[in-house]
Amino acid sequence: MKFITIDKKDWAKGIEKSRKTYQLFGPVKDKNGFFIKSLGKDMLPDMDYHDSVMSVKSVLFPQTENILTTTLDEAQEDHHIMKRAVTDYSPRAVLGIRPYDAKAIELVKLNFDTDDYKDPYWCDAYEATTFVGLGLNKPGPFDFSSSTGSGPFNEEGLDVLLADLDDKYLAKVLTDKGEAFIKACGFDLIADDKESQALFDILRKEAEKNIVSKISTDKLKEKTILEIHEAPFWDDIAFSCINCGTCTFVCPTCWCFDIQDETKRKASTRIRNWDTCMSPLFTKHATGHNPRDTKTQRVRQRFMHKLKYFFDKYDQGIMCVGCGRCVKSCPVNIDIREVCNMMNSYEKQE
């Protein structure tokens, strides 16, 4: 473990230097909010942001991703043979992401990178990426990350964690990847380990004090699936839902996708797009039958997956990192905190 002090005056220069090796991503303001975007030439990450509208998941898992391509032109020898799409997996670094988003990547990894199957696209992107996190000194009023196993200075999933100390950043280098990046930036002012760690602890405790929002997940595990599945509150929760996919699209942990073949002239591409369990198409069979045909079934599926099935399957807590994006983005204010608490405290009436 290594700590580096970075004077903010040197920040831009260092970042610039890293471009020799890395493509950079980071928070950028667009319209009324921040987005994690590829940083073009001369663009710096806006490290004064509070939170991004969309999470960082699209850096590894874009909303639309070409996976296979082929040509239908029979004059070509290899026509109709699907080949992996050419994607740039050169090293990249994402700057300033919030710790809960990094934690989310670790949760998503449980799906894409398993012993049985490694999704090549996600894994290659993951391999190529260095995550430089920024601790959240002042979490917002709807941040409930501490009760989801994450928190404002959580280190899981990060290669470097920065702490903002007004005139400088204190960087905690967590992995080799992180070290390589810091080196590429030319940041070499080593700070004292003990002092630095103490500083991080203080910052974390201060930040956690700000977290007023909490959920309880302690009893989720002991309830049976059927018990919660048949609970009476689902209709009420689902009533106001308009079945848009906003919650799933802004969620850093939602990983579902759909595969489509698109043909333009002679060029055919297999793409994968984010899918959403809110859409009736999500489970619609080719026969026309849909096992999740009603709104209530779909809303229940979303929460059961996040808060029960995932919990049971991976034993890594719930599939939520407490960022609060879905709560704020939902057009009808369906609040995962309330639903989680309802599920957690539900006792079947005999």
């Binding site: 667009d30 319209k31 987005f35 969309m54 909303q63 308009i242 079945n243 848009c244 996919g245 906003t246 699209f249 959403t276 859409s279 057009p331």
Partner: peptide, 12 residues
């Protein structure tokens, strides 16, 4: 530009 095709506009 930023549309994520969540179709919230349509569904609302």
């Amino acid at each position: 530009k930023n549309c994520i095709r969540c179709y919230a506009c349509r569904n609302a």
